[in-house]
Design a binder for these strands. Structure first.
Lengths: 221, 221
DNA sequence: ATATTGTATATTGGATCCATTTTTTCTATC
DNA sequence: GATAGAAAAAATGGATCCAATATACAATAT
């Protein structure tokens, strides 16, 4: 007898599904800052009970994406200017280091993939996809560092500020600048210049942070 | 009318209590790596139902302290040598930066508190308290950096490896060395030398990591 | 005797129900 | 008409109950 091996992988739990969906919605800005998240309402949306919803909300709170208060419920977390500043500064530190560690390990396939993401980013006109392509470009390079823990931290840090970044990229012409910076980083990687790639990554993140703070100050005032 | 301001703080939820207790037990090594955590059993220990226990376990999993599998339950997570190495390398990066940022903001009170923790560390003989005092010493200095997000990350990173460190400090004579390094860091802080304090912090963490890896290799072989 | 199959038990994920507290609405009074 | 207070509605945290699955063990066939 011969059967094709089918991967009967564990179906994701309801809590996982709800968590992923809410995380995505918050990151992409579909759920606005300060918006109320009702357990009942979310449970109905996913055709489930409030138990897995509560677990999902608890995880989101751990990652700082929402805040909850007893008997009051959950709201999408907002960030102060200081917090945004701090997160960008932190990302610059960690991502520059990850980039530096990655360069010696970059192979042709990885570089080719990064180049594709880079070109795709420049051509993309759908603002909703910029964020995703941006992540793909950087993560493709970062993955070569062989530092999964660093990457996990970078992911949660980026999660916190991604929706602000997307709003800014959409409403300003930051994409052009980001595209140029991406190309410069890619060039440094192709040259195997770890120090330069690291420095450019640092500047790239810090630039984005500065632009965002300016943007938000105008917007919020 | 004059009333004493009473802090009517929200009573911690059952899930918070269970989470804190389990986190502490894992960090301090009271729950051994690989140990099974049964929801029923934990719920009985805390005189509650399995619902808050599940929420606590979910949070612990998010922080990497346990792993769970459907229908199988939760076990205290173990770390490979590579993971331990990576976490120490990461801590060295972040804590060195936090230390550097903290030095210009250190005032007399903070320095005095740090000195007390430092002396306490050297005098303490109860191995179970070393970990706690060690954290207090470093956090007292780090707090002056005014970087709460960095500190939160440092905390979760330290959580992951703290029980290994405690085991090593207890079974070897690492305390003496750590004590000397603490004193050197404190000296640099008193001199206001941010670069030196940062470098010493980095070396302190990396040294601890190296000692721990050697210790674990001997122990596990 | 050993390998395989069926069954009982243990354990988890989720649904439903209850208690507590907040928020809103309605009413009575000024 | 405005305001204070009471009642109702809404929302959360937790307890209990149910369904699905894994593990352990007994029964059976070869």
């Amino acid at each position: 007898m011969k059967l094709a091996a089918i991967d009967v992988r564990q179906a994701a739990s309801a809590a996982d599904i709800v968590y992923d969906a809410l995380r995505k919605a918050i990151i992409e800005g579909d759920l606005a800052e300060g918006e109320n998240l009702r357990q009942d309402q979310i449970a109905q949306m996913f055709n489930t009970s409030r138990i897995p919803v509560r677990e999902a909300l608890s995880r989101l709170e751990q990652h700082g994406l929402i805040t909850t208060e007893r008997y009051k419920g959950a709201v999408v977390a907002g960030l102060s200017m200081e917090e945004i500043d701090e997160i960008f500064e932190f990302r610059a530190l960690v991502e520059a280091e990850v980039m530096r560690l990655a360069v010696p390990n970059l192979d042709q396939d990885t570089l080719a993939a990064a180049r594709r993401h880079c070109e795709e980013f420049g051509l993309e006109t759908d603002s909703a996809r910029w964020g995703e392509i941006n992540r793909s470009f950087h993560y493709t390079l970062y993955a070569a560092s062989g530092r999964p823990y660093y990457l996990q931290i970078v992911r949660t840090s980026l999660d916190r500020i991604d929706r602000y970044l997307r709003a800014q990229l959409t409403l300003t012409n930051g994409v052009m600048r980001a595209d140029r910076e991406h190309q410069a980083i890619l060039e440094a990687c192709l040259d195997g210049d770890a120090a330069l790639a690291s420095r450019l990554t640092r500047d790239h993140v810090l630039d984005a942070g500065r632009s965002l703070v300016v943007f938000l100050k105008n917007q919020r005032s």
